[in-house]
């Protein structure tokens, strides 16, 4: 059933990473991503890999879930690695027709694979340990400086929150409409592509109608409670930095310094 699709990967828990300030986590993610692509030798890369592995272990999320998110991109990793393998410059180790494998090629292939895997892993750490609402809160706060360019950060964050809030609702609605049309003999599982696209019309139209109706209702309900946008609004749950947040920042900063040193001296 369509309801079984999990959207948003938040895995509830109470580990240290779950309790970190979401702003810190977002900033850490960004710096680690930058780090991943700033590693130019194996020493620097292994430092980053160690950091990523440590955060995966500390997240206390079953490894199975990480592997599941890997599964989706395994093809991408394979293709990019293969391309890199054959496009290295320098002396060939093995050659067949137009394909030649060089030492630089092997090195690039390994680098690319490790980088992509680390990237997916570390992004998963964030989405597994941070609830969608915390995430949007953090993004809203982090985007605040953009306010001087007249970017409506609160409105953007509110839109994201509402969108996330209504994903399960709309999925349930889709499920219901699909059942109702199936009960009238709608056939969605057979026929060619055009026939299948046409079969979606009886589902999409009622879905849009109900989505718009929900939007109007929600807007009305928000106005009834005097919602006027971000100006002068305070939060019920204030984000506050704790000791552990500063410690996390220090760790990432140390790794950053380590990587730079590795890049320069090794």
């Amino acid at each position: 059933m369509i309801r079984d699709i999990t959207l948003g990967q938040y895995f509830p828990g109470n580990g240290i990473l779950h309790r970190l300030d979401p702003r810190v986590k977002v900033l850490m993610l960004i710096s680690v991503i930058v780090l991943i692509f700033c590693t130019f030798n194996f020493f620097a890369l292994s430092v980053v890999v160690a950091l990523v592995a440590a955060s995966v272990i500390m997240s206390k999320v079953p490894l199975k879930l990480y592997l599941k998110s890997m599964k989706a991109i395994i093809i991408v990793i394979l293709i990019t690695s293969l391309l890199n393998l054959f496009y290295g410059t320098g002396e060939a180790i093995a050659q067949w027709w137009i394909f030649k494998i060089t030492q630089a090629g092997i090195r690039n292939a390994v680098f690319v694979a490790v980088r992509i895997i680390s990237l997916v892993m570390v992004s998963s750490v964030l989405t597994f340990t941070t609830s969608p609402t915390d995430l949007t809160d953090a993004l809203e706060r982090l985007m605040k400086p953009l306010g001087i360019f007249k970017v409506k950060t609160h409105e953007i964050a509110m839109m994201m929150t509402i969108a996330l809030r209504f994903v399960p609702t709309l999925l349930e609605e889709t499920d219901k409409i699909m059942s109702a049309q199936k009960a009238r003999g709608a056939d969605m599982e057979s026929g060619n592509l055009i026939k299948r696209i046409k079969a979606l019309v009886p589902i999409l139209i009622p879905l849009f109608v109900s989505a718009f109706r929900r939007a109007y209702d929600l807007a009305m309900a928000m106005e009834c409670r005097c919602y006027q946008g971000g100006k002068g609004r305070t939060r019920m749950k204030q984000l506050r930095m704790h000791g552990r947040d500063f410690a996390a920042v220090a760790v990432v900063a140390a790794v950053l310094a380590g990587v730079i040193l590795c890049n320069i001296f090794l």
Partner: peptide, 9 residues
Amino acid sequence: FQYPENQLF
């Protein structure tokens, strides 16, 4: 279904 008017298209 319940509230069948939601299926009109």
